[in-house]
């Protein structure tokens, strides 16, 4: 009847579809804004610079862990070893705090151990074609077991989260700007630049989008994958160090509770677990959304269990929406 109105309506639907498909970060920012608005309505006055600082501080380690998932998911993989590796890193650093080399030695040992674990994972996935889910799962068993052994060996020397880690993990500038941004901002720039402007980043997308095409174009996927899992493991270690500093604890299961939210943040951020689609920008927003959502549910007085139910439901709904808008029909 009213052709132009119908066309208009259709246009809007298509535009939304396109927006969600091509620039998912825009609707995600909108969702984040709505959540912040709702939390302000629920508890007037809560949103303040200090509150923002707390949210950002909590989001940073989650975003890094989600970054591990983003990078691996771009190639069609996943990294379930980040929890074990992150915990291990925080734990090793804490136990080496009284060693001659001090904190620096601890961090170097932790990062090196993480890189080694990532290297082995990468060889398994890249060379032996073990499914990433299983390979990283197996690696997490190995790392967790060795961490436990390390724990028993080191228990007599005494341990503690080093002050420097506590500072960078939990302190803020003027009660607002968390110092963990000192780690996060350079890392983010590196990842964003890496994904958009380097040959390596292109290959991550290529392998995930179409491994056959990548191969026919001359890509040797094993090289890319080995490097990828080393990067992911080192990022997991960095996140683990920050979490250990934030919570002032060091335990072999410290990061475990962040594993599933990390995957969730990447999925919400628009990265497809099937590979070839997504990016770190969306993931950061995804991590912020999850953190704000947690805060909102706390403000609303909803208990932790309800939060989990809401979390899970949101992931399914968002993933289904992405699947709908990105599938060719």
């Amino acid at each position: 009847m009213n052709a132009s109105a119908r066309a208009n309506e259709w246009l809007t639907a298509v535009t939304w579809r396109r927006l969600l498909r091509d620039r998912p970060i825009v609707p995600l920012m909108g969702l984040l804004a709505i959540l912040v608005l709702v939390i302000e309505l629920a508890d007037p006055g809560i949103v303040s610079p200090e509150w923002t600082g707390v949210i950002v501080r909590a989001s940073v380690p989650l975003a890094i862990l989600a970054g591990c998932q983003t990078l691996t998911m771009l190639t069609g993989g996943i990294d379930l070893s980040v929890a074990a590796i992150g915990s291990m890193a925080g734990f090793v650093t804490a136990t080496l705090v009284h060693s001659p080399g001090g904190v620096a030695e601890g961090i170097i040992v932790a990062l090196a151990a993480a890189a080694l674990a990532g290297l082995l994972t990468g060889i398994g996935v890249g060379v032996f074609r073990v499914h990433p889910l299983i390979m990283t799962l197996g690696m997490s068993f190995v790392v967790l077991g060795l961490s436990n052994v390390w724990q028993l060996q080191m228990v007599q020397t005494g341990a503690g989260v080093p002050d420097s880690l506590r500072w960078i993990g939990s302190s803020t500038l003027a009660q607002v700007v968390p110092y963990n941004l000192l780690v996060f901002i350079p890392l983010t720039l590196l990842i964003l630049l890496g994904l958009r402007r380097t040959g390596y980043g292109r290959l991550l997308y290529a392998i995930g989008d179409n491994p056959v095409a990548a191969r026919l174009s001359g890509t040797r996927a094993w090289q890319v994958l080995i490097v990828l899992y080393v990067i992911s493991a080192v990022m997991a270690a960095i996140a683990g160090l920050l979490i250990s500093g934030l919570t002032n604890t060091a335990s072999v299961s410290l990061v475990d509770t962040s594993l599933l939210p990390a995957v969730a943040a990447a999925v919400i951020g628009g990265t497809s677990i099937l590979g070839g689609r997504g990016g770190f920008g969306g993931t950061i927003v995804g991590a912020l959304i999850l953190t704000v959502l947690t805060a909102l549910l706390t403000v609303l007085g909803l208990p932790e269990p309800t939060r989990q139910v809401v979390f899970g439901s949101i992931i399914v709904v968002v993933a289904a929406a992405y699947t709908r808008v990105t599938s060719e029909s």
């Binding site: 290529a206 095409a213 040797r220 070839g276």
Partner: peptide, 22 residues
């Protein structure tokens, strides 16, 4: 479907062989 990165841009598809070597 065997040759193209369907979700990526024309530019990335054309430039793909340039970046394959380490």
């Amino acid at each position: 479907a065997e040759a193209l990165l369907m979700q990526r841009s024309v530019r990335e598809n054309i430039a793909l062989p340039f970046t394959t070597r380490v």
